[in-house]
């Protein structure tokens, strides 16, 4: 009798356990599927965007063929479009921004983590992060009304004069000084991506174990040597990641650039001359693009921007992998 009761109780317990376990399993299954569908949604959206970009750009490639990538002409009258000036402008403004922003951003980050007195770190850090919070249209308006006239009046004439006697560079910095142009757009982009580079570098710099730095200081290294030989090698991956994030933003930035680049479909030898970028062209012309080929050319530009961004990011990954192999684990 008692045996029976005990057995019965054990059976009930086992049943209960199985029930609870299956409830857990069910919960896990539901959870897994929810997260899976979230991931799939992103992939579907991405695929949809790529597909619709490709579909939309077929008429342009059909009409212009490979010339769409190599032609400098952008002529709505004859319906002949070439993407080269926009590609050139996009790449040059972004590179200019990186060239200016990386040393500046790293300098700020090193100062904030290594040299700055404690009480000043937070205010300076917050000020730089605030730069990231300014909407891009504000940069555009500020660039057009304040920065460009300032450059035209005071900075660009001096640059033109300074480089005039130097061969090659004299044509890279040739006049006339408009204020507006590729150079100005690059500088504004540099200001816009500065906070990304700075705050990410600062965050990764502060992950360097103090013991490494103290050891370096202990054997008589200067701050410069510590930064160059210890901090930068240790945080290389993070720093490059921040730079790439900045580059990604610079490539796609639209409104600020549209205001100050001059929107001219031309490749000029001079950095001071007006140019255009892919996103500025689309923003300027899409609403007024009449005719299938015009609209399709703008969509094709969008596809190209997508590809450029993808290639840049892929290249960055590749570079990081090679750095890792060469330098070993950080």
């Amino acid at each position: 009798m008692t045996d029976f009761v005990v057995q019965d109780r054990a059976l009930a317990k086992a049943k209960e356990r199985a029930k609870a376990l299956s409830a857990f399993r069910l919960g896990d299954l539901v959870f897994k599927n929810i997260t899976l569908s979230a991931a799939v949604t992103v992939l579907v959206i991405l695929g949809g965007v790529i597909l619709s970009l490709i579909r939309g750009s077929i008429p342009a490639f059909h009409a212009m063929g490979f010339e769409f990538l190599t032609s400098q002409s952008w002529n709505p009258v004859t319906d002949k479009f070439g993407a080269l000036p926009a590609i050139y402008g996009t790449v040059v403004t972004s590179l200019l921004a990186i060239v200016v922003a990386v040393p500046l951003g790293l300098g700020v980050a090193v100062f904030l983590t290594e040299l700055c007195p404690m009480w000043a770190r937070r205010p300076i850090g917050i000020a730089i992060e605030l730069l990231a919070g300014i909407p891009s249209i504000i940069y555009g308006i500020w660039g057009l009304f304040i920065f460009a006239p300032f450059l035209q009046e005071y900075v660009q004439p001096a640059i033109i004069e300074f480089f005039a006697p130097i061969p090659f560079l004299s044509s890279v910095f040739a006049g006339p000084a408009y204020g507006i142009g590729t150079f100005t757009a690059g500088i504004i982009l540099a200001i816009m991506i500065l906070p990304f580079i700075t705050s990410i570098s600062r965050d990764v710099f502060s992950t360097v174990p103090p013991v490494l730095k103290e050891a370096a200081y202990g054997i008589g290294c200067t701050t410069w040597e510590v930064v160059r030989k210890v901090v930068i090698p240790y945080t290389r991956v993070g720093v490059v990641g921040g730079v790439m994030l900045g580059l990604g933003r610079a490539l796609g930035e639209t409104m600020a650039v549209t205001f100050i680049i001059g929107n001219a479909h031309k490749i000029s030898g001079s950095l001071l001359a007006p140019g255009t970028t892919i996103s500025a062209t689309i923003a300027n012309e899409f609403t007024e693009a009449v005719g299938d080929i015009y609209t399709s050319s703008l969509i094709a530009l969008g596809l190209l921007l997508f590809l450029i961004t993808f290639v840049v990011l892929a290249f960055a990954r590749l570079m990081l992998m090679r750095l890792d192999q060469k330098g070993g684990k950080p």
């Binding site: 952008w74 709505p76 001059g262 479909h265 007006p274």
Partner: peptide
């Protein structure tokens, strides 16, 4: 045309 291939200059929206 409503938009043409401008031979020179700055474009503004």
């Amino acid at each position: 045309n409503a938009s043409v291939e401008w031979p020179t200059g700055l474009g503004a929206k």
